[in-house]
Nucleic acid binder design. Sequence first.
RNA 1: GGCCCCGUAGCUCAACUGAAUAGAGCAUCUGACUACGGAUCAGAAGGUUUCAGGUUUGAAUCCUGACGGGGUCACCA
Length: 591
Amino acid sequence: MSIVNEIKLLVLKALKELYDYEATEAELTINSTKPEFDGDYTLVLFSFVKQLKRSPEQLGKEIGESLVKNDPGFFTAYNVIKGFLNLTVADNYWTLFLQGNYNNPKFGSRVSNGRKVMVEYSSPNTNKPLHLGHLRNIFLGWSVAQILKESGYETIKSCIVNDRGIHICKSMIAWQRFANGATPQSTSMKGDHFVGEYYVKFNDEYKKEVEELVTGGMKKEEAEKEAPIMKETQQMLLDWEAGKPEVIDLWKKMNSWVYEGFDITYKRIGADFQKMYYESDTYIVGKQFVMQGLKDGVFFKKEDGSVWIDLTAEGLDEKLVLRKDGTSVYITQDLGLAQQKYDEFKYDQSLYVIADEQNYHMKVLQLSLQKLGKPYAEGIDHLSYGMVELPSGRMKSREGTVVDADDMVDEMVNVARNKTEELGKVKDFTEAELKELYDTIALGALKFFLLRVDPKKRMIFNPEESIDFHGFTGPFVQYTHARIKSVLRKAQGTSFKLQAGSLLKLEKDLIIQLEQYPTIIEQAVTEHNPSVIAIYVFNLAKSFNTFYTEHSVMNAESEEKKQLRLQLSEMTANVIASGMGLLGIRVPERM
RNA sequence: GGCCCCGUAGCUCAACUGAAUAGAGCAUCUGACUACGGAUCAGAAGGUUUCAGGUUUGAAUCCUGACGGGGUCACCA
């Protein structure tokens, strides 16, 4: 149990004894005491003033008095300022806490709770490489899954690959027209980048053809439909649906190139999945699903043959779920996929990591499933995150302003290498060790940068200013870890058994922060929000650095202090490593 | 236009979900390596929380309105 909860229970007891007042935990507000006041934790008194008909000062005095008297081993002092009761917790409590947890690398993690949650993330299209927006999605999804896992959930990471549709045919057509049989191998390009180039070529050609038609006197909207390359593409989509062998072969070939490319990127950035779904499969399941819904009378058919769901009663519109020609739309496959996921995994909760531009779509999906009476609809939860934008606005692939994921990682690795060489602290590392270190630092910087912001908010990335290694960053936290490890290496062989009597302010501040780690993880779980962990870990590292410059560990004033500070150092290193681990970030022993 | 989200230091972000004098990082300025790792630390400066009302002992936070930005309302995915 966290200390805040312990304090709450003691306060409840005191309220009962003093005033015969039965309060609930929710009524109590316990905050960390502001640094300018004495105390560790603060009870806000205003909410009781009315019920108990006493002034805040009087309440504070009576409750404070009672708490210190009843539990002198727990609270050692109190003071009341305005409506705030500041409580000081015994040093002994904190040192015991430290003693009991300092060498537990699993501090903060929980045992299984028997609940199963699916996390769907990444979900790329197979016509172009991953970009910075995908990285936010991937890091978020992976991290949230990891946080849930460490908190006792069974997690299944899944990915839906958008491998069919008109956009895929576009790069296929462009390849047929312009490639002359070129392959990733023949051009020594990464497969996803190779295919992405043909997607760009398609758009260039399409634009050219539309312009030509417009110059020839055609209206723009008409030209957009009539451009020969677009007509060809639409025909290809029909051929694909009909299963025409040449088209299917080309489709398989080009997708396999893309997958090879994705695999390299996923591996490099540490993304993994237990289950892959492909839209080319799920769209069929989706159609069957819709037919069933039609039979059950939840969906209805219009005269032209298209199938709809009526969500007007729920405050939304009528929504198309199947085209008049019987082909599926976006929502069709998502309906089928939800069913498929549940059939296979019987999840309690199904989390979709998808950008907030699809909020409406996800609402429709959940409502539709509820209307169909699917019990698993309640477990569906949209982890809606804001888009990554450039200072100039949204990234536009057509305008070539997307920040490519692989380029981004490469660039960060370069910065990491330059900085490391400049500092020259790891000259004895082997090539392999150096390479690993650069990856650790580069990905640490990138992941931290994308995860430190509240997922719900959109964020701005300025490519001109490369990601910093100072201040509120991954490398700052990694550096703190490496520095602690350096001290601990010097202390190897000493036992950390002794207890220290009293605590200095900076020592106590650190322990208090360490004690909060499990509470922070809980918050991250309920909010599906890794940023609270990033912020916490940064603050912890900062507190350690402050402590470290002020007080010597190895040359402490006494043997007791040395032992205490070694424990403090070890636990800080453990919690940093653990917290960063929840973000998918490794921490080096040296850097 | 309907619905949804957002507006906090020059910039990028916090604020424990309504509490004390709104906090960090970057950038700017000043200091600290003969002390366990300077990718560090200490300090300065920087704010009418877009604006106007309201609720409350207390509002960046809740309500109403205005202004500004974004998203979405496709037989695209």
